[in-house]
């Protein structure tokens, strides 16, 4: 769902900390027709110009709080990501992205379950790695965008 609209087109930018470029970020919406309990958000498959950035280097910013990694997000069991709200995905990358247009592929993982699905006990121990389609909710394909780095 919303395959072509999950990333806001003019949102890709480098992130600076203490005068150093430490990575990049982009704004996303939820790939579903409803929001979710934030704890269910299990990260992204992210590919930029052919290079993959795993969940371990990702953070997510929502609800006016500082960006949190997905180990912290997992603990937000009574916090909600509302359907109407945009969040920011942060990716660590020393030096950030070069100016110009980048080919970005994403798949969002949200562990929604329409009841007691057989794989849930396994997902407690070992949540799916985003990108395989498992836990990808309503968009099982990787969605690609050509995004210009904003300055």
């Amino acid at each position: 769902m919303f395959d072509s609209y999950l990333i806001r087109k003019d949102s890709l930018e480098n992130v600076t900390e203490n005068g150093k470029v430490v990575g990049f970020r982009f704004a996303v919406r939820i790939a579903d027709y409803r929001g979710c309990m934030l704890s269910l958000h299990n990260g992204y498959y992210i590919e930029v110009d052919g290079e993959v950035y795993p969940r371990e280097v990702q953070k997510f910013e929502i609800n006016g709080k500082a960006p949190r990694d997905f180990q912290e997000i997992k603990k937000a069991v009574w916090e909600h990501w509302d359907f109407d709200d945009e969040g920011y995905v942060y990716v660590e990358k020393e030096g950030g992205l070069a100016p110009g247009v980048h080919h970005v592929g994403i798949q969002q993982s949200i562990l929604v379950a329409y009841g007691y699905l057989p794989m849930l006990p396994k997902w407690v121990e070992e949540p799916p790695v985003p990108g395989t389609g498992a836990g990808a909710g309503k968009s099982s394909f990787i969605c690609y965008y050509d995004l210009e780095l904003q300055s």
Binding site: C36, L40, K74, V112, Y114, G115, Y116, L117, W123
Partner: peptide, 12 residues
Amino acid sequence: VYLDALQFRDHV
């Protein structure tokens, strides 16, 4: 309404 049985993540 829904039933996201993994809400608590450390157990079903």
